[in-house]
């Protein structure tokens, strides 16, 4: 493994373990409510959820079939909180690649090593992707196990499809934070851009479904390429996932080009 990749992974291992535990705790907590909800259809069923305003239901992803295993998993775990946790984790990792070491000054010595600047960014991105993959694999195994334990009845390949989407969405936002950090050299702008794109993208994708004025914007929302294919219901939306992965690669190229041509630490 290239030196910068293994070094970055070593530096991030505590943070990766903490994220795995945190996201795992979220999955455990929310899936543990499922038996209670599926056994109280009349309390949580369609009729009950109709009480919520339509726009709010849209924002929560529709909340259809909330008391079924797949509906619950989709609406509660994989709709909003699961992806958002991955997005934040990836954005933090993306900032660790360039912006944070540049702000603290440790990047100074790194860029004077006999490593091409472009390779430096690529290797830091590889570390980000591998770290995020580790978190994704560990939390997937947990989600699969819990889903079986509480009896949601969702097939493992569907959970894998949804989890892959969450990972790719995270990778996209990690690459976004890396790209802004590589261009600006500061964490603030990277976090701001990630925040705006994530929140804006999510709202556009969910509420824009029923608002014609903004529905065209769904095409530029990264969430569109995760949520629209409904992976828990329909399996891998291959085309959408390729778009997400492709966008992450484009952002990586942007990061490389931006970092290669600028002054460090000024």
């Amino acid at each position: 493994m290239p030196a910068l990749v293994s070094k970055s992974l070593r530096d991030h291992r505590r943070s990766l373990i903490r994220w795995t535990i945190g996201i795992g705790a979220f999955f455990t907590l929310y899936l543990s409510f499922y038996p209670n909800i599926s056994q109280n259809q009349e309390l949580y069923g369609e009729a009950a959820l109709k009480k919520f305003p339509g726009a709010m239901r849209d924002l929560m992803g529709g909340l259809e079939g909330f008391t079924t295993g797949v509906g619950y998993l989709h609406g509660v775990v994989y709709q909003l909180f699961g992806p958002m946790l991955f997005v934040v984790c990836a954005a933090v990792l993306g900032n660790q690649a360039i912006a944070r070491p540049e702000e603290s000054g440790t990047l100074e010595l790194t860029v004077t090593l006999p490593i091409d600047r472009r390779r430096l960014v690529a290797e830091r991105f590889a570390a980000l992707a591998l770290g995020l993959l580790g978190v994704a694999v560990a939390t997937f195994l947990l989600a699969w196990g819990l889903s079986a334990a509480v009896g949601t009845g969702v097939a493992v390949d569907r959970i894998l499809a949804a989890h892959t989407g969450v990972f790719l969405l995270g990778l996209f936002f990690g690459a976004l934070s890396l790209a802004v950090g590589a261009a600006a050299g500061r964490r603030g702008p990277a976090m701001a851009v990630v925040g705006v794109v994530a929140v804006g993208g999510y709202i556009v994708e969910t509420m824009g479904r029923n608002v014609d004025a903004v529905s065209w914007l769904r095409w530029v929302s990264p969430f569109h390429y995760y949520l629209d294919g409904r992976p828990l219901y329909q399996g891998f939306p291959v085309g959408d996932y390729v778009v997400l992965a492709g966008a992450a690669v484009v952002l990586l190229v942007v990061a490389i080009l931006a970092f290669d041509r600028r002054d460090i630490g000024v």
Binding site: A3, L4, D11, S104, T106, E108, L109, T112, L113, P114
Partner: peptide
């Protein structure tokens, strides 16, 4: 740059990593 030894004016070293491990990393890259 591999043929140069550089001491920055404002050297930043941080974290839990031991100095020896960091030196081993730098040595490996060079």
């Amino acid at each position: 740059r591999g043929r140069i030894g550089y001491l920055p004016g404002e050297l930043a070293l941080e974290g839990r990593e031991k100095a020896g491990e960091y030196l081993a990393f730098l040595a490996g890259v060079r």
